[in-house]
Design a protein around this nucleic acid. Structure first.
Lengths: 148, 148
DNA sequence: GCTTGACCTCAACTAATGTTGAGGGTGTAG
DNA sequence: CTACACCCTCAACATTAGTTGAGGTCAAGC
């Protein structure tokens, strides 16, 4: 017999995400589960795809909130369509491009300042890059992408 | 008369760093001050250079702890030598290069997967990049650079 | 000498992304 | 039917990088 639903432990093993993190994602609304009569979580297989997307998006540098927003636009308990995935990943690729360009500018500035050591507030390109690392809010983790 | 020392407010204005953050950096050992008879902080002018370095290093993606370690190797209350700066910034540029390359691989994977939507755990390059974003510890903010 | 703005410390709070542990229920193989 | 692995909730903790506020002090101009 083929299992059509998965327990939280099975999802954890298959996805490499800790059970506690799966609970957390569920609280945040990123994934959903149904419950057995005994209140245990059971997941559709499509949750694995959803988790895969979450992992990729995290490695791109998105916050869970942003990922949740992106995920909210697609079917909750079916695998996303190719078009859905295409739209999301294309946007992320663009964001990555922007981030890469930004880091490139930073590196070039660093290169041109090596040996100069000026760090002049006025003239040093490193001091006035015009694009410091973006943040969400004033505190918390730095994110990888500039503001969009 | 030319001021040889600066109050915390002056440093804040000149560096663009909040007073509370300067206190914080001091607690973390990144910067130092002397005190007046009335217990107020007074900074050597060289602290501005040090803060500039901190800002650049943060925009490169280093944690304050890493920055502190790098800063620990150079004179506490003199401006760092050109050689000091050269050594630090060269290392950071290399780290940036590595990070840029990593993001490039991620973007390429994203590009090749757009329209495929596979995300197969086995075969999808996005799922097995071999270089997810580095972290310090298991929790806390993502950092921008891979492990070194 | 007094007022006003700048400064002091310390504790508590923020935010994101989870983990850990206590205390107790579930499900299934034998 | 019983043991044992697995699952549940909820609260507290960890980490980074700070901010905010309360309660009190310092310094400088008038």
């Amino acid at each position: 017999m083929w299992k059509s639903v998965l327990s939280v432990g099975e999802v954890a093993r298959r996805s490499g995400i800790a059970v506690s993190a799966l609970h957390f994602y569920e609280r945040k609304g990123l994934i959903r589960s149904v419950r057995t009569s005994g209140n245990q979580r059971r997941y559709e297989r499509s949750v694995l795809r959803r988790i895969a997307i979450i992992q990729v998006a995290q490695s791109v540098g998105l916050s869970l909130e942003e990922i949740g927003a992106a995920l909210a636009g697609l079917p909750a308990d079916k695998a996303p369509s190719t078009a859905d995935w295409e739209r999301m990943s294309a946007g992320w690729r663009d964001a990555l491009d922007a981030r890469i360009a930004q880091l490139g500018r930073l590196r070039d500035g660093l290169g041109s300042c090596i040996g100069c050591g000026c760090l002049s507030t006025e003239t040093c390109p490193l001091r006035n890059p015009g694009d410091r690392i973006g943040r969400r809010g004033k505190t918390g983790p730095r994110i990888l992408l500039g503001e969009e």
